[in-house]
Design a protein around this nucleic acid. Sequence first.
RNA 1: GGGCGAGUGGUGGAAUGGUAGACACGCGGGUCUCAAAAACCCGUGAGCUUUAAACUCGUGUGGGUUCGACUCCCACCUUGCCCACCA
Length: 971
Amino acid sequence: MTKTKLKDNKYDPREIESYWQKIWEEQKIYSPNLDASTPPCTRRCGASLRTKKPFDPSASLRAQGKPFYNLMMFPYPSAEGMHVGNMYAFTGADVYGRFKRMLGFDVLEPIGLDGFGIHSENYAIKIGRHPKEQAKISEANFYRQLRATGNGFDWSRKLETYDSKYYKWTQWMFIQLFKAGLAYRKRAMVNFCPSCKTVLADEQVIDGRCERCATLVIREQREQWFFRITHYAEKLLGNIEKLNWSQKVKTAQRAWIGKSEGALITFKIKNSHRTIDVFTTRPDTLFGATFLVVSPEHPLVADLFGQGKDVMNYLSKAVVKSEQERIAQGKGKEGVPTWYSAINPVNNQEIPIWIADYVLMGYGTGAIMGVPAHDQRDFEFAKKYKLAIKTVILGIRRKPETPESLRAFHAKGDSGQDGHQTVARQARMTAGGEIEEAYIGEGVIINSGEWNGRKVPEDIGKVIDWLEQKSIGRREVTYHLRDWLISRQRYWGPPIPLIYCNICAKKGESWFTTDESLKIERKSWKSDHASPFDFLSSTMRGWFPVQEKDLPVLLPDVKEWKPTGTGKSPLATVESFINTFCPNCKSPAKRETDVSDNFLDSAWYFFRYLSTDIDSTAFDIKRAKNWLPVKMYIGGAEHSVLHLLYARFITMVLKDIGFIEFEEPFSRFYAHGLLVKEGAKMSKSKGNVVVPDEYIRKFGADTLRLYLMFLGPFNQGGDFYDTALEGMYRFIKRVWRLILDSCHPELVSGSPSPVPSPLEGEGQGEGAEIPKSIRQAQDPEFTEGQVRNDTQRRRMMHKTIKKVTEDIEHLRYNTAIAAMMEWYNYLKLELRGKKLEVTGEEVETFLKLLAPFAPHVTEELYHNVILRRQPKDLDSSSRLVGTQNDKKWSIHLQPWPTFDPKFLEEDEVTIVVQVNGKVRATLEVKSEKLKVKSYVEELARKSGKVKEYLEGKEIEKVVYVEGKVINFVTG
RNA sequence: GGGCGAGUGGUGGAAUGGUAGACACGCGGGUCUCAAAAACCCGUGAGCUUUAAACUCGUGUGGGUUCGACUCCCACCUUGCCCACCA
């Protein structure tokens, strides 16, 4: 087959690609042996084990058989199939993986499908097909597409989250969290999507709308299962700085965890024995507190404040208000006074207590002290309801230091009083002397008794100390992060593996009262929870996890799988599912009927990839030790918060309960950019979603891969234009032709002769059939000038190796490809009209550099030109590719080319000659003369038009930057 | 409202203090062909000029630092993404 192709000189991607994909998968060249890899070097990472080479500048990148877990975010298999955005992400990840493999790492690059959960179920509802059936269809389609992209996936390790072999262990994870006391049930205000008919985690509510269907969510009191992720808030936050992630993602995670430090202050309520705790980051303004506000959901509202017609009226309105309405209302804050007042503990002043929905129950204590003079929201509220405003901070602004900022400062209308070191500044006033906005800047405390004169923010710590001494308040830290609402009233997910026993509940028993529980040391609990056992055994009455031997709890195959809207999962009506026996007392009991959130499926899948061949455990501990954490994780920035945070949380839990020794799952995370179509975001509603299939059919996966990687910087995304693809197709065809046309005919047609490898010491030396330089075809006509030519050509090659190597390492794929094009253009020009040919060394190097981007065509050419084997010899029956031990036949298992800096040195360097910073000439200077300024200056004065420009001018200064530029500065 | 990016030819982009526009797309012209496609060759920031050479201008706007600024600093404009009544 290939002979014909070569004769015709025709590049036919379709034939080549499917052929090699089949061979790769058959020969398992991308399937590392997970149990046999060299464990990571503990002494010096990346050191070359081949010490024979005198100097190898890229040695630090090399490794011999070291595990490299190259992970990409597994896709949600939408029924429309994989779109080109998925392919963009996967190709970028695959290029990196292939590069690492050629550098000698044992690369694991697994793929799977995240097909469990609401997104898949909603689609099933839409088209009216059972999700299980739809999953099968999507799966086949997706895997077909994924194969066609030519990624180096380990197909022996794929997984699907909806496969019971997988979700068995998702359920096992749930049980581990339960047993660690990190899963609990509580009645709480939750987000409910009336369209999806399920509750949602806070993270899944965007602008008050459902993340999946954009329906306005309703706030409701419901009893639900939660994971205690807040328990890890401090660790999740603290570890961030150690991660090799982009600053952007780290910032997003920090913001989401949202740590605030401040104080908890206790107010007494007049005419009541009750007290109110408020959290504030500004305890220094306590003297300025003129009212207290509690959230409508605050427990004291039901217990104490909920009296009076006005209050009842307000509450009935506020509680049903959706999140969206509250936000839309913006600054028009509404509230209602209660009949109660509180006592400000620092000055015993009586201040009114209000109820308002601008205070959120979910943050802090659900109650705040209103300091209108120094908080904008409190200010607006005070204005609206004519509440007292008391200034306690005198603003200070330090005099601006630079002339520019001073000018800007004055231009803004700040009435700076020149000559003073500081400018007194308070809240901005209207002409009538009324305050226009709260002052929240730095300053000095006033009107606050013994605190007067203290500086803010410097002395806030001292203020808190004072409060602690007087037992008025204490230091407190609070987080924006809330516990993870994990239960969903849906069908298409892993049933939560818990059983409720009414009989045990009545006896006050739960799993936490069993012997097994008592034996477990709960490392995950902080010491300040003095008795987690008591706490859990009281809140978890009647609840028991399914015994591990009984896993999985299979999702029953039912006809009525659509969401019910009754607040219960469709499983709640399946008698055969619900009824079971209590693991504790063996009497009849009932199963939990909710399923777990889809984000749990994806929070641990990278553990499962390592052990898809093992049924007896979630993941093999030894393999996890060798292969994890993930060395490189590539995915979309939209998962900066949710998925990455959940995966980190689960990993920390697994560490605390003793399964692993690390607590961060992803050493490096790299967020790729977004691919758009002709300037617009691809979306189903716009109908501009690009599916790779047709492009692969027309141009081949190699062309599409190269094109996608060439669009722009990988972390910035790109714009997909049909026409531009042709250019990349052209490039591959040109390379194909250059290599085949300029190669010695004998080489292409066969009859190999054993000769030493042109890339000496590159590991494939002994016995390998590598041809010597083709140009040694001894043609006397071009020996003339050959030496100079050789040097130049070698320099170009080494320059390209350097550039491509460094660019791929930094994921600058677009410039790596450009460098290869430049080299191609150079060779083309070099060979044109002369009898020259590309050397074997050049061909081999070029193919290797291109291999991560265009795996199929490079493999094909490598076999025909370098190995001189016909692909048909590679059928599994052939002796050439006999055993799995002999995998050297593939270009993708060859060592990455190295460059030698000694070939990079130029013997002549171009110096730019400037007069007053303007380029007037360029100059070729011999390298060895570069250091001599006087010599260069001499030449420069005479070069080009420089003489004219310097005529009659006095030279004030000559700036010479060695090897780059010389600039004459005249008067 | 807050945070983080980005602004360069007709287009995607390159250059992170030293010849702006690499590389590619598109476009124009040519070769081959009966013709078309493909392929190949030449040109392609703007202005001035018949052409060439030369010169001038040119990286969102205004200012600054520097012998020299797309690059560093200040202010502003535009735009994208993320978060948002977080006390």
